[in-house]
Nucleic acid binder design. Structure first.
Lengths: 126, 126
DNA sequence: TATCACCTTCGAGCAACTCGCAGTCAACCG
DNA sequence: CGGTTGACTGCGAGTTGCTCGAAGGTGATA
């Protein structure tokens, strides 16, 4: 069982975001303790992780909510869920490629600045 | 020389976003033609590309603007720019790792749905 | 001449946070 | 026993970064 603070640290989200997601109903069957504090069990943490990953694929919170509802409905929705996941898989792969290009671009810039800095230092030593 | 539409297609941004960035001053020395239409030369496209990459690293538009201003100021700001790029390089690398984890997570889900679907089909053929 | 296919500005709207306040509760400390 | 600390609560307002659409200008084509 985790508190908001713990689960936020665990999943690298802010506490605000965790509350925001739970308030939006993105974590089914979230328990509360006797003081009304949110209690995250394994399942709740997994739902949050799922939200996080889908969110980072570019999926909107409403669509994520729809997907989570489908998950609650049992085997009848498996093919629909498969369609959704396939789309997000494509999105995730495209993003991975883009992330690689980004790293290459920025690495090159950083290296050029570094070389320039070295050159400037050697031309004008202290 | 590119129009808004062309540069948007080239960099995979919306036309709205391209105009938004230029209006925010994120593309130095952007030229206009005799009808006041934005004209993107090689340099302008490169600035936009730079904005796009930094943006996707999680950098805010204000910070990007600051960086671009530093670029305009010449060699005196090289070390400052190097610091910025190093930070963004770290961010980009962290993101790449996260993107890999995301792909793995979603791939696994999609595969499980696929297997489940196959199993359901074989148990209940048409 | 009119209908396109572009472009322009501008202001409103929206998603997803993000922040901070006021208040509750439990635990510890002098 | 009072006070402080710290983590939680809800809630409403603010921010960022788009996103959309209206209203209008220009030039080429039918």
């Amino acid at each position: 069982m985790y508190t908001v603070k713990e689960v936020a640290a665990l999943l690298d989200l802010t506490e605000h975001t965790v509350r925001y997601y739970t308030d939006k109903g993105l974590v089914p069957n979230l328990q509360r303790d006797e003081h009304n504090n949110r209690q995250f069990d394994k399942a709740a943490v997994n739902w949050l992780l799922c939200v996080k990953h889908l969110r980072h694929c570019g999926m909107g919170l409403n669509d994520i909510k729809t997907y989570i509802s489908l998950c609650q409905e049992g085997d009848a929705t498996v093919s629909e869920r498969y369609e959704i996941m396939s789309k997000q898989q494509a999105a995730a792969l495209a993003q991975l490629e883009e992330a690689k290009r980004r790293v290459a671009y920025i690495e090159e810039k950083a290296n050029r600045y570094f070389d320039l800095l070295m050159k400037m230092k050697s031309e004008n030593p202290i």
